[in-house]
């Protein structure tokens, strides 16, 4: 198993955002996490890469504990486990003070993944993959939202993650340009990248994801293969959501 999550709990003050969440992610899984705003899906994703600290439960990444029964591993282990994951944010979060090239190269060299020359090769390869080779020396502010998000995906891929986490990657984009980001993600899925995608794109969830997790008020209301959840939803809440 790539990721095992058991009995995860998290509250912000008196607001219990995650209640007893358990699921597993196998290598090559593309899991769409669906649910209404405030259902806890973003918090769940952020917990996996330690942007949020959970109150209880366990997260195991490739057999090693990130947190076990609410007690976190040591700093070094946390760093090592979260380094296996790449994350793409809704607001891209590119570094505005650096060119596209520098955005990709800097984390690679700063984290000691290899030489500058190696970083440069990888940078060109990945920008080619997301179709932005010509934007190498542009600053993020001169790119469209869709282009920025594709750069953000390339930047995360620079560090060669085993798992990619996407937190509403197309929610900030105009409907006309969500397609270019989704197709980049689709390419990634067909390269057998393990992906967890918090999204409102039901089309993507249905056609690209192999599993769907539907969250409601901090619990997994329904989970299963994309096929099963979309064609034979069991829970009335899921049914209502999918009809929207």
């Amino acid at each position: 198993m790539m990721i095992q999550v058991t009995n995860l709990q998290k509250a912000f003050g008196s607001n219990q955002v995650l209640r007893d969440i358990s699921f597993e992610v196998a290598r090559g899984d593309v899991i769409a996490i669906l649910g209404a705003s405030g259902s806890g899906k973003s918090t769940l994703l952020r917990s996996l890469i330690h942007l949020e600290a959970v109150d209880g439960g366990s997260i195991t990444i490739e057999g090693q504990d990130l947190v076990r029964d609410g007690i976190y591993a040591g700093r070094e282990q946390i760093r090592r486990l979260t380094a296996k994951m790449g994350m793409v944010f809704q607001a891209y979060n590119l570094f505005p003070n650096m060119t596209v090239k520098k955005n990709l190269i800097l984390p690679f060299t700063l984290t000691g993944r290899g030489s500058h020359a190696k970083a440069q090769d990888r940078c060109l390869e990945l920008l080619g993959k997301v179709g932005l080779m010509d934007k190498l020396n542009d600053f993020p502010s001169s790119l469209s939202g869709g282009q920025q998000q594709r750069v953000a995906i390339a930047r995360a891929l620079m560090l060669n993650p085993d798992i990619m986490l996407f937190d509403e990657p197309t929610s900030a984009l105009d409907p006309q340009i969500t397609g270019e980001v989704l197709s980049t993600m689709k390419d990634l899925a067909s390269d057998h990248m393990t992906m967890l995608v918090v999204t409102h794109e039901l089309g993507f969830a249905r056609n690209v994801a192999n599993k769907v997790i539907f969250m409601h008020q901090g619990v997994i209301e329904e989970a299963g293969t994309a096929e099963a959840v979309f064609t034979r939803p069991q829970s009335p809440v899921t049914k209502a959501f999918l009809r929207l």
């Binding site: 890469i49 330690h50 942007l51 760093r79 979260t82 380094a83 994951m85 790449g86 994350m87 944010f89 607001a91 979060n93 590119l94 570094f95 505005p96 003070n97 800097l106 984390p107 700063l110 984290t111 930047r155 995360a156 560090l159």
Partner: peptide
């Protein structure tokens, strides 16, 4: 400076010092 810049640095594995000197201070 947008708080999300810290999160981007964290998920990319940058140290606190690298985050400050390379990303936060220039901005």
């Amino acid at each position: 400076v947008n708080r999300s810049q810290f999160e981007a640095c964290q998920v990319l594995g940058l140290s606190h010092w690298q985050t400050q000197t390379r990303v936060i201070f220039p901005q």
